[in-house]
Write a protein that binds this DNA or RNA. Structure first.
Lengths: 140, 140
DNA sequence: CTATCTGCAAATAATTTGCATGTAC
DNA sequence: GTACATGCAAATTATTTGCAGATAG
């Protein structure tokens, strides 16, 4: 028989990191938490995040060009990945919600969905020149 | 100055594999090609597939729960991953095409998109019991 | 108490890369 | 002939796992 999951300092720290860190990878979570809890190990971060994902407590994002990311926002939504700064933005598109409701597409019975857009985030689409300039400065 | 890409036996073999193998991973391509061309190395498979993806010759699919897959079908379409057999199906949804045409969603300027559905493929949604039975037999 | 969780370190496994050699054009 | 491509093997890097000790309930 399996008992209820236990509330631990480590899980709390990992979840807090998810709220602070805007779609972080497991490693980013680790690096955020480590200075505060030096004994919390990488393995634990992966195990805790995997548990959260398995229980539906967080969403696991498998995005092109980066490691697996985790998202504590449970409301159905898509993601936009900026091709300039790499930031991942939440995009709420009510239209997609209806598709999730068990629609059938060409014989494939849909139970869940995930949409990844590529493009420019609000910052980067605003003033491309300024942004390119900034990136140049950083690289130097 | 960079010259045009060269036509090689290896690239041809990798592309043929893509056409035969229904959304294969790099390793699946390697295992398909290797018996025929034993000297073709894993590194080359990754390099060739990466090149194809970079030139837009094939689509690179980053799907949940499996390694990166490659798709030679260039027409805009979504993918369905069956939660029972794991098969990846092509799903053509004209509605999504309009979104790709540079729409703006909440300040995010969309240039490209990728949709992954989870659910049941035609085979598995048809007769779940028979399928479960078959899987059992395979495992034994 | 005891089942779950964590730390640590070693094991996996996909992907990348350096370099010498091969070959398309 | 020359620049691009490949083979090979070693290096990287994310993620998983075994096991002994810690701890939540």
């Amino acid at each position: 028989m399996s008992g209820a999951p236990r509330r631990t300092r480590q899980k709390q720290a990992v979840y807090d990191a998810l709220l602070q860190l805007d779609h972080p990878t497991a490693t980013e979570v680790y690096e955020y938490v480590h200075p505060v809890q030096p004994t919390l190990s990488r393995g634990t971060v992966f195990r805790v995040l995997g548990g959260f994902a398995a229980s539906g407590q967080v969403r696991k994002l498998t995005m092109e060009g980066s490691d697996t990311r985790f998202d504590p926002t449970l409301a159905p939504h898509a993601h936009g990945r900026c091709r300039i700064c790499g930031r991942v933005c939440d995009i709420f598109l009510p239209d997609y919600a209806s598709i999730a409701a068990g629609a059938v597409c060409g014989g494939f019975q849909v139970e869940g969905w995930d949409v990844e857009f590529t493009g420019l985030c609000p910052d980067c689409s605003g003033n491309l020149c300024a942004k390119a300039q900034k990136n140049k400065e950083i690289q130097q």
